[in-house]
């Protein structure tokens, strides 16, 4: 498709081509000399960091002692429009914990990254992070279990992201 038909009709095709190339060459020189900021980056050598609001791969946060914050209340699984969260709850012997997940799985291929799970969670146990690089072959590679969600090496070297949201208020009010 020729965008500027008038230009070619007026000058003929060869001359028109060079006139049109002018803007390409100008931009190339500007970019090479650094006179104008480039719109692209050298991915994957350079990486773009999205803001915290970006909804990427999920993370399960941990308590200060390193255990999962999730209480398996199933609100995320209830709210999830893609039905991609599968939790199996179990009894915890610690009466202050009482209920904890034995299995927490997210099927990434089903997930629509809407962030409803993050909103539904009453204890800040699940967050969507800025991680956007996802690739995999078989379907199994796209199912993330609780070990990967909470303790993958990217998250403070496998220690997980510690969250203390509301803990202070909770202890103060002894809710």
């Amino acid at each position: 498709m020729i965008l500027n038909k008038e230009l070619y009709r007026h000058h003929g095709h060869l001359k028109g081509l060079f006139i049109a190339l002018r803007i390409t060459i100008k931009t190339m020189i500007m970019n090479l000399t650094g006179m104008e900021k480039r719109m692209t980056i050298n991915y994957p050598e350079e990486k773009y960091f999205y803001s915290d609001r970006f909804k990427g791969r999920h993370v399960l946060t941990v308590k200060e002692d390193g255990t999962l914050r999730c209480t398996s209340c199933m609100l995320c699984a209830t709210y999830c429009p893609a039905d991609c969260i599968h939790i199996i709850a179990s009894n915890n012997d610690d009466p202050s914990v009482e209920k904890a997940p034995v299995s927490f799985e997210i099927e990434l291929l089903r997930c629509v990254f809407c962030g409803f799970c993050e909103e539904a969670c009453p204890v800040d146990a699940i967050r969507l992070t800025g991680e956007y690089e996802m690739a995999g072959h078989s379907e199994q590679e796209w199912v993330m279990d609780q070990h990967y969600l909470a303790y993958r090496p990217l998250l403070s070297g496998g220690k997980g992201i510690v969250s203390t949201v509301d803990d202070h208020n909770r202890l103060k009010l002894r809710l």
Binding site: T71, S72, C73, L75, E98, K99, P122, V123, L175
Partner: peptide, 9 residues
């Protein structure tokens, strides 16, 4: 008044 906020569990 003294009811714990246990609804999630």
């Amino acid at each position: 008044l003294n009811h714990p906020l246990d609804c999630p569990i």
